[in-house]
Amino acid sequence: MPSSDKSINWTSLITICSVAVLIGTELLGAAWASGWALAGFFQLGPTVEVILQGVFGLIALYAIFVFLRQASRVEPIFKREGASS
């Protein structure tokens, strides 16, 4: 069976994109706030603050990637035309 008989499951795609925006915003906001709070609490200075925000931001982006990968397994974006379910 050729792979060209796949179509987009729009409901799943919209759901995953909406959740990605929600979760992504919260994770990146928490990453930024955590870097700011830790640098301020320990009086580390603005340079370390930006570094902490960047490190926490990268961790948040990785978490978003893992979440989206798992969400696309639960809610498949592509559906097969001839598949019997």
Rank of each mutant, 00 (worst) to 15 (best):
A39G: 13
I23V: 09
S72E: 13
L68Q: 11
L27P: 07
A71P: 05
G45C: 02
K79N: 11
I51T: 12
L28Y: 02
G40C: 05
S18H: 05
A60V: 01
L68N: 12
T11G: 13
Q70F: 10
A30Y: 12
I23R: 02
Q70H: 14
F78D: 14
V21Y: 06
I16N: 06
V66D: 15
W10H: 11
G82Y: 12
S72H: 05
P76Q: 08
V66Q: 10
Y62M: 11
F56M: 01
V19L: 13
Q53S: 05
K6I: 12
Q70V: 08
S85F: 12
A71T: 01
E81F: 06
P46V: 15
L27F: 03
Q53V: 02
Y62W: 13
S72T: 14
A30I: 13
Q43R: 06
T15M: 05
V50M: 08
F41T: 11
A33G: 00
D5L: 15
W36P: 00
A39K: 11
I16R: 00
F56N: 01
F41D: 09
L61C: 11
S12G: 12
P76N: 10
P2E: 14
G29A: 07
P46Y: 14
A63G: 04
S3V: 15
T25F: 00
I14E: 14
L28R: 03
G29W: 06
I64D: 02
A83D: 07
L28W: 01
I16H: 00
V48S: 04
P46H: 14
Q53E: 09
A37N: 10
V74Y: 12
L28K: 03
G35S: 05
A60D: 03
W10Q: 13
L22N: 04
L68R: 03
F56Q: 01
I77W: 08
I23H: 02
G24K: 08
P76H: 10
S34Y: 02
W10D: 11
L38W: 01
I51Q: 03
G54P: 13
G24D: 07
G82W: 11
S18L: 06
L52N: 04
F65A: 12
V74D: 14
A31I: 00
L52G: 02
E49G: 05
S18M: 04
E26Q: 14
F56G: 01
S3L: 15
F42H: 05
Y62I: 11
W36N: 08
I14F: 15
D5T: 15
R69A: 07
E49A: 04
M1F: 15
S7A: 08
A37W: 10
V19Q: 05
V48D: 02
L52W: 04
G35V: 01
G35W: 04
A63I: 08
G40S: 08
T15Y: 03
I23L: 07
F65K: 14
Q53D: 04
I14K: 15
L58K: 01
E81P: 00
T11L: 07
Q70M: 09
T11R: 06
G54V: 12
L28A: 02
S84G: 06
I64H: 05
A71W: 02
Q70I: 08
G57F: 00
I8G: 06
